[in-house]
Amino acid sequence: MTSTAGSAGPTDGTTRRPSEPGAAPRPGGSAVIRRFTLAERLVHRTTSWLMLLCVATAAFLYVPQLAELVGRRYLVVTVHEWSGILLPVPFLAGLVSHAFRRDLGRINRFAPYDREWLRAVRRRWNWAGARPAGKFNAGQKIYASWLAGATVLMIFTGLLMWFTGLLPLVSRTSATFIHDWLALTVGIVLAGHIGMAFKDPGARRGMRTGSVERGWARREHSEWEDETAAEERREARRRSD
């Protein structure tokens, strides 16, 4: 830990601005680092708008007070059906992006520190460094994987309600039952996702602009650099094999 002459107090080396007079470029580069490419942000942006439309129309179909407010059931149903059915499209389109596929791989794989992260959350440990995470923390990994499965289920049961008789084995009543209760669960989980983004301007900045402050990254995703280094080593080994 070094302090810069003339500054009010000791500066955290990881958050030094490049514009700071006399600040030598640290190994590791500038104060901001790239988190998401434009393609990834577009996938997130379109998915979130579709999801919002889907959840809002669901509320207007389902909550009696809201249903009374807007009526127009046929229109609301149509918007709900199409926003739901289109939900996987941004994801599928995103698969052409290398960065997106690579992040999916990161979300899929659990490292030992993810278990540490989960343990820290379970025991409510939140001192600095208690919750190590790669580019995505264990919570984000489980959230994304669960929501992917839940979305498939919602579309499947939704289609069974839309086209009755698609699968004679499953009655529309059963499909509605799963669709309703899973919708409630998805709503709660989404509220958690949005709430957590609301509390973390650094994370929001990453999704909005594509880059994050290095200090934020080291604080919230302490293993991200190691994760990237390991990936590079793995790739180098694959090339040399």
């Binding site: 659990f110 030992p112 993810d114 990994k141 992917a148 499965g149 498939v152 190691d226 280094a229 080593r233």
Partner: peptide, 22 residues
Amino acid sequence: GRWDGRGPAIGRRVLLGTLAVG
């Protein structure tokens, strides 16, 4: 820091588990 193995595909398991429960 030198650990460069790939962890288990828990994400896939969570996804498939969700589908199975559904």
